[in-house]
């Protein structure tokens, strides 16, 4: 148990460090938010007045202390370009990105596990070979390109969904999930291929081990041997990949939101960077960092749950 508590503490520290670095980075890079808002033709007086209201005339350390104090209270300041609190601005966009990420993750598991089991069970058969080739192909397709192909085939060709027809989860949850399936698929596909390869390798190793023979000797069917005995063992080395994939999917969803016109964190992040809207950018980066660190923490906990040999008192 103490191991997990230590992990949680170090995760909180990591988030704090990320927050500091993010703030530092944006006070170092060139570009003036006041100019970005008023344009290069603005008078120096107007610019000075705007900097005053934005709080930009204070020193960097003073602004940092102010910002951190706000962040701890859950207040990321006011957006320069939208003139509204950042928390309010991203509150309804964050769930979209989180749901898209989780959706992709669930799809990845739901597809790769049965595929790996079928291929490992019928190792070296034609079926196995076919799955291997398909997996190699999808592995090399980046999500944004996969997204375009999916839109072309399933959206424009087969008309299974309307490209650009995003429906907010607050309007119709069912149609929201129906539309989100396609971007989630685009994100999941290359990960499915990688998860498949790793699981396949694990399963074909595990199925030759002595305990698999023991399982057969008790009267288990092949399916039960795979699902009840081999899968958990084959998953242990793959969990690390699952963690990395989850973090990667958070970043991937920001790109794919553009392809599928989804108003998530991705779109607002890009426009905010263009507008030098630092409070928004900082808040989003901190959010993403928290998501990544929390997913790593979950992976670590999952490890301990799955593999009893990991000593928890480390």
């Amino acid at each position: 148990m103490t191991g997990i508590i230590k992990k949680i503490i170090s995760s909180i520290l990591t988030i704090a460090v990320v927050a500091c670095l993010v703030f530092m980075a944006f006070s170092l890079i060139p570009g003036d938010p006041a100019v970005a808002k008023l344009g290069t033709q603005a008078t120096p007086e107007k610019l000075a007045a705007l900097r005053e209201t934005m709080g930009l005339n204070k020193s960097v350390p003073a602004r940092f202390v102010e910002w951190i104090a706000g962040v701890v209270r859950g207040d990321f300041g006011t957006s320069y370009s939208y003139s509204m609190p950042v928390t309010k601005l991203i509150a309804d966009k964050l769930p979209v990105t989180v749901i898209l990420t989780l959706y992709s993750f669930i799809l990845m598991i739901a597809v790769s596990v049965p595929l790996a089991i079928v291929a490992a069970r019928y190792e070296n058969s034609a079926l196995d070979k076919t799955i291997q080739i398909l997996s190699q192909i999808t592995m090399s397709v980046p999500p944004f390109f996969g997204g375009i192909i999916i839109t072309l085939i399933f959206g424009l060709g087969l008309k299974l969904f309307a490209p650009g027809g995003y429906v907010s989860y607050s309007v119709n949850a069912g149609r929201f999930l129906g539309y989100m399936f396609w971007p989630a698929l685009a994100i999941a596909l290359p990960k499915v291929a990688m998860a498949f390869s790793l699981l396949y390798g694990g399963l074909t190793t595990e199925k030759r081990k002595d305990y698999a023979r023991t399982a057969y000797s008790r009267g288990n069917s092949t399916k039960d041997v795979f699902y009840k005995h081999l899968l958990k063992n084959a998953c242990i080395p793959v969990i690390t990949f699952f963690g990395m994939a989850l973090a990667d999917m958070i970043a991937g969803s920001i790109v794919i939101e553009q392809v599928f016109s989804i108003p998530g964190l991705g779109r607002i992040l890009l426009t905010s960077i263009q507008n030098r809207d630092y409070p928004v950018v900082e808040a989003i980066i901190v959010c993403i960092a928290v998501l990544v660190i929390v997913s790593n923490l979950l992976v670590d906990i999952l490890y301990r749950v799955i593999d009893p040999r990991i000593i928890t008192e480390d």
């Binding site: 023979r213 399982a215 057969y216 000797s217 008790r218 009267g219 005995h229 063992n233």
Partner: peptide
């Protein structure tokens, strides 16, 4: 018949049990 009328034990007790399952679960399996 397997695990009911014919049972088998093996040479390597260290590897013949599933490492991630509790003993109780494995003894109860048959």
């Amino acid at each position: 018949l397997q695990g009911d009328e014919i049972s088998m034990i093996f040479q390597e007790p260290m590897t013949s049990l599933n490492p991630v399952k509790k003993i109780g679960w494995q003894v109860e399996e048959a």
